[in-house]
Design a protein around this nucleic acid. Structure first.
Length: 185
DNA sequence: TAAGTGATCTCT
DNA sequence: GAGATCACTTAA
C-alpha cells in the first residue's frame, strides 16, 4: 500500500508549493462502504494571514480556527449554504494556511467532490490520518512540471485584483496532454 | 444568467 | 438580533 502522508509533509510555509505537491497524490476515503482512493487533480492555495482571499485574512474566528493550528488537519466548512468545502491545513502553527481540494480524477468541482465522497463537517478539525477515515497517500506516478498548469483562483474576486490574480490554483493535466501540447508546437 | 441555501461574521 | 456575504452548482 502507498505511503500515508502525514503532517510533516504539509508543515512548510510555501503553501503554493505544498498545493502543487498534493497533485497526483491520492485522496483516500475509508468507510464501512469500502475504500476509494482518487488522484487529486485540482487544488488552490490559501496562504497566510495577509491573503485577502483566505478566510484567515480577517483574523481568527470559531470557523477558521483550525487554519491557525498545525498542519495535517482537515478544514471543512459549508459554502453558500449548500456545499461542503474540503481543505487541508498547512504550514506551522500560528501561520493560517490551507489547500482547498477542488477536484479529483472523475470528479470536478469542490462541492461535487465532497458530495460524491460524502465528506462533510464531521471531518472538520480531524487529522488526515487513516484512523479518521480520510487521508492522503503518496503519488504512485511522479508529476512533472509540464503536467501542472497554474491559474488564478476561482470565485475570489472579492479579494481584489492583487490577491485574486495570484496563480495559486494548480491543475494536473490529463495524462498525455502535456506531450500533445509539446508536439503541437 | 440567476436563484437557491444556511452558516458565519459584522454591525447595531 | 438583523443584515450582508459567501473559496458553488444547477437548471434555464
Amino acid at each position: 500500500m502507498a505511503r500515508v502522508l502525514t503532517a510533516e509533509a504539509w508543515a512548510g510555509r510555501d503553501t503554493a508549493a505544498i498545493a502543487r505537491r498534493l497533485l497526483g497524490c491520492r485522496l483516500v476515503v475509508g468507510g464501512s462502504e469500502g475504500r476509494r482512493a482518487l488522484r487529486i487533480t485540482e487544488v488552490e492555495a490559501y496562504c497566510g494571514p495577509h491573503d485577502r482571499a483566505s478566510h484567515a485574512s480577517r483574523g481568527r474566528t470559531p470557523r477558521n480556527a483550525v487554519m491557525f493550528g498545525p498542519a495535517g488537519f482537515w478544514y471543512v466548512y459549508l459554502c453558500y449554504g449548500v456545499h461542503e468545502m474540503l481543505n487541508l491545513v498547512t504550514g506551522p502553527a500560528d501561520y493560517p494556511a490551507a489547500v482547498l481540494i477542488r477536484g479529483v480524477e472523475g470528479i470536478e468541482g469542490p462541492g461535487r467532490l465532497t458530495r460524491a465522497l460524502r465528506i462533510d463537517r464531521r471531518f472538520n478539525h480531524l487529522p488526515a490520518t487513516r484512523t479518521t477515515g480520510l487521508w492522503i497517500e503518496e503519488r504512485d506516478v511522479p508529476v512533472e512540471s509540464g503536467d501542472v498548469a497554474a491559474t488564478p483562483r476561482i470565485g475570489v474576486d472579492y479579494a481584489g485584483p492583487e490577491w485574486s490574480g495570484k496563480p495559486w490554483r494548480f491543475v494536473l493535466r490529463a495524462p498525455g496532454e502535456a506531450r500533445a501540447r509539446r508536439a503541437k508546437r
